[in-house]
Amino acid sequence: MTEIQTPRLLLRRWDPEDDLVPMAEINADPMVMRWIGDGNPLSLEETAEKIERWEEEWDDEGFGLFAVELLGSGELIGFTGLSVPDFLPEVLPAVEIGWRLGRQFWGQGYASEAAHAALEFALQDRGLDRVVSIAQLANQASVNVMTKLGMTLDRETVHPVHGAPLAVYAIDLTEYQA
């Protein structure tokens, strides 16, 4: 089982029995979801389907989205990790790093801490040469995490389904500072 520990966090595979309800609560928050896809919150059933797909990606690709929990309490705070950004064919082939945290965990450096660990996993453990990250242009908090990771703007584009302006950031292995 793949696990990564940071000073405050544990990144691990999903346990649908324990993780479904807390992740569904995060996905049900309109403020959390406003920058994701069409901006609509997800139901418990939709979250269950997502967790199942995230675990399938681990099996198919050898990487995926980690469940992120606080070391001290074991509380699930969201996810970070790697996925193939099929929704944006113009950047393929690519692997994207992404994150989503419950609102009560924003502004504490957890997203940057978890994403840095996931980026190191991508470039050093999984041997990827390049990683991208995609966010809506107005999502300044995610853009800030991308720049903290050492990523630079690769291109601006538009979501092919929802029409939202997107920023695609990237980092190559040669640019990465562990």
Rank of each mutant, 00 (worst) to 15 (best):
T2A: 09
T2H: 07
E3Q: 14
R8M: 13
L10G: 15
W14N: 01
E17L: 11
E17T: 11
D18Y: 05
D19K: 05
A24V: 04
E25Y: 00
E25Q: 14
E25S: 09
E25M: 06
I26R: 06
N27L: 00
A28P: 03
D29E: 07
D29I: 05
P30T: 07
M31K: 12
G37Y: 03
D38M: 02
G39E: 03
N40I: 02
P41K: 02
S43F: 00
L44N: 09
L44H: 10
E45H: 01
E45I: 04
E46N: 01
A48W: 08
E52R: 12
R53S: 11
W54F: 15
W54K: 11
E56G: 12
E57L: 14
W58C: 07
D59S: 13
D60Q: 15
E61W: 10
F63S: 13
L65G: 09
F66Y: 12
F66P: 09
A67Y: 07
L70V: 15
L71V: 06
S73R: 05
S73L: 09
S73M: 07
G74P: 12
G74M: 12
G81E: 11
L82I: 05
L82E: 05
S83L: 11
D86N: 14
D86I: 06
D86V: 09
L88H: 06
V91D: 14
L92Y: 08
P93C: 04
A94Q: 13
V95W: 10
I97Q: 14
I97M: 13
I97G: 13
G98Y: 12
W99V: 08
W99G: 12
R103V: 00
Q104C: 09
F105R: 08
F105D: 10
Q108A: 14
Q108W: 10
Q108F: 13
Y110I: 01
Y110E: 02
A111V: 05
A111E: 08
E113K: 02
A114L: 05
A115T: 00
A115E: 04
F121Q: 07
A122N: 11
L123W: 11
L123V: 10
D125L: 10
R126I: 06
V131G: 07
V132D: 10
I134Y: 06
I134F: 03
A135I: 01
A135P: 03
Q136Y: 01
L137W: 02
A138H: 00
N139T: 12
V143A: 15
N144W: 07
T147N: 02
K148A: 09
K148G: 01
L149K: 08
L149G: 08
G150K: 07
G150N: 04
G150P: 06
D154V: 02
R155T: 11
V161N: 01
H162Q: 12
A164Q: 04
A164I: 00
P165F: 00
V168F: 13
Y169R: 03
A170V: 03
A170Q: 14
L173A: 15
Y176I: 09
Q177R: 15
